[in-house]
Design a protein around this nucleic acid. Structure first.
Lengths: 246, 246
DNA sequence: ACTGCGCTTTGATCTGCATCAAGTCTGGCC
DNA sequence: GGCCAGACTTGATGCAGATCAAAGCGCAGT
């Protein structure tokens, strides 16, 4: 009903289960599972369902009954809200290690869609709550994550309410780079897996303005566009000055 | 260093301690303390310090070491972030029952300032963490609160990124009314305790645009300005249509 | 009651980004 | 390897809201 299903590489039906395997999880240290010992990990493993979504495939829609939460293990996801006339605000991009579903009460507060082929662990909320009760260190970790997300949300409000287009793009590139680094991916020629339109809807701009502004940063020698959606931050210092933070 | 100290009615030195008294707390059912039994309440009481801040007085500044968290029991507080050239984004308004400090790690992610004479319970973070360990129901409650705040933050991103001035003002008035109701205050002629400038910085507009837009809503018969900062939502339905949500 | 200062409103003009409109590039597919 | 559709870039023009400017207005202090 909301986002156009522009799924392409989708071959499997949404969410083919593959054996859960926390033991070999490459992003565990980044996730909500980080503080768990073997006993906790076994408990989580027992309730985790691994799912794979193709690029463009929707995970859930805003307003839908929120039965699950997710942990991204591979790929990239965008979350967004829509107005009835189609205006869209992308409220976040999630990568490997990121937790998805904190902001939901009874219903999801936003829609979520895979941007690339994405793998994630899905948990039934009621199951996770039982595990949380047994392992308070996991609940503490969730609270930390929520605090970080809240701080990032406020940074984004500052960007959306008060920054110019140039400042927004500079902030965005630095944010992506910083998050890539935190997630153990390459920070400098930074991978930008989202479309201009997704960037525009994240930054409260239009695709044209995003394109023009990136072109300007390039001709000013602050960044270099490489193939494969990579962007090199040629003058990180100047970008930081423009962005003021991040 | 950040917000101009326009304190006026400040007579006492910042934070005169008055006896903590959870037993007679009028907003307990709204707060993080809601799920606690007598034992838990006693533990919280033991670490709570009651403070009073005058209108315009700062609670803390962004970047400052975050040693405390707060629970507003009376009054109204605004939280905001600043850019170096003075541009300001108000990221939230807090009223009786609201919890303050979730979004901070080592340092506060924003500055906070009392808008009216405000009373709050202050907790040392390290103390609260010990109490949380003993009373997991309080930690659960905190997680719920964080989830709500996250959802509100995303709603605000939609507003800042994609709504027109008229839609922003309509959304804001409905939000204030809804929160007043949730806090047990009067929802219809709704109290608007913040200045035009605070509203502008919350909505990503200028004071002039806020003023013009409110005037227009008034002349369109959707709202009525009353004395004492009260606004009557004369046509709530029309306002909702304009706002699309909230 | 008067005065003065800060807040709000109202008016005139300007501008950064949106909108409208063509191209141009890219990569998936036959 | 050539074709096509969708994504991106570039250009011309328009407009919502910012900026600049000047009154009103309310109330704290005398």
């Amino acid at each position: 009903m909301t986002s156009s299903a522009k799924a392409k590489s989708v071959v499997l039906p949404p969410g083919v289960a593959i054996p859960a395997a926390c033991g070999v999880c490459g992003v565990r240290s980044l996730t909500v599972c980080a503080p768990l010992d073997e006993v906790g990990l076994t408990a989580v493993d027992a309730i985790a369902v691994r799912k794979t979504f193709g690029a463009g495939e929707g995970l859930f829609d805003e307003g839908e009954r929120a039965e699950h939460v997710f942990n991204v293990t591979e790929g990239a996801v965008k979350i967004f809200k829509l107005l009835s006339d189609g205006r869209r605000q992308v409220t976040g991009f999630l990568f490997a290690g990121d937790f998805l579903g904190l902001a939901s009460g009874e219903a999801y507060a936003y829609s979520a869609e895979a941007m690339t082929e994405t793998k994630l662990c899905r948990f039934q909320k009621s199951h996770l709550e039982m595990v949380l009760q047994r392992f308070p260190e996991m609940e503490r970790r969730l609270l930390d994550i929520a605090g970080h997300e809240l701080a990032e949300a406020q940074e984004q409000m500052l960007l959306l309410g008060r920054k110019t287009a140039r400042e927004r793009i500079a902030s965005f590139l630095l944010l992506l780079s910083r998050r890539a680094e935190a997630g153990g991916r390459k920070a400098d020629p930074v991978q930008v897996p989202m479309s201009r339109s997704d960037i525009a809807d994240y930054l409260g701009l239009t695709t044209e303005t995003v394109s023009r502004t990136i072109t300007k940063l390039k001709s000013d020698g602050l960044i270099e566009l490489q193939s494969g959606g990579l962007i090199r931050l040629a003058d990180r210092e100047a970008l930081s000055d423009i962005a003021e933070r991040y």
